[in-house]
């Protein structure tokens, strides 16, 4: 299991370095290291509280959103670089990349 280093900005604007393992679900990484309350629905694409904004290179390396996720992103009026972290697995391509946890509404 390879270490993947991520640069995460939380909702308060604080930046921290987080080390994940390749294959981890990003939402779980954020819950463990940053904010335990993220993702109230547990990954069912029905709450939108795990929304993150990613650096463009990280975004480009990821598989496209499923129809369910795409529908949710639209309903949230999410910006162009946003994804639901419950649907993303961390891999080597994410090493050194940045993500920002979307603010609560």
């Amino acid at each position: 299991m390879a270490d993947v280093k991520l640069i995460i900005t939380d909702r308060a604007g604080e930046v921290r370095n987080v080390t994940a393992q390749s294959g981890d679900v990003l939402m779980q990484v954020l819950r463990e290291h940053v904010d335990l309350t993220l993702g109230t629905c547990g990954g069912a694409i029905s709450c939108g509280t795990c929304l993150v904004t990613l650096s463009p290179q990280w975004l480009a390396s990821l598989p496209a959103a499923s129809d369910d996720e795409a529908e949710m992103l639209e309903a949230l009026d999410a910006g162009a670089f946003s994804r639901l972290s419950c649907q993303l697995a961390v891999d080597a391509a994410a090493d050194g990349m940045e993500a920002t946890i979307a603010p609560e509404e």
Binding site: C41, A44, I45, S46, C47, G48, D68, E71, M72, E74, A75, L76, E105
Partner: peptide, 8 residues
Amino acid sequence: SRMVPPKL
């Protein structure tokens, strides 16, 4: 909640 998630 600010909206009803599409799936629901």
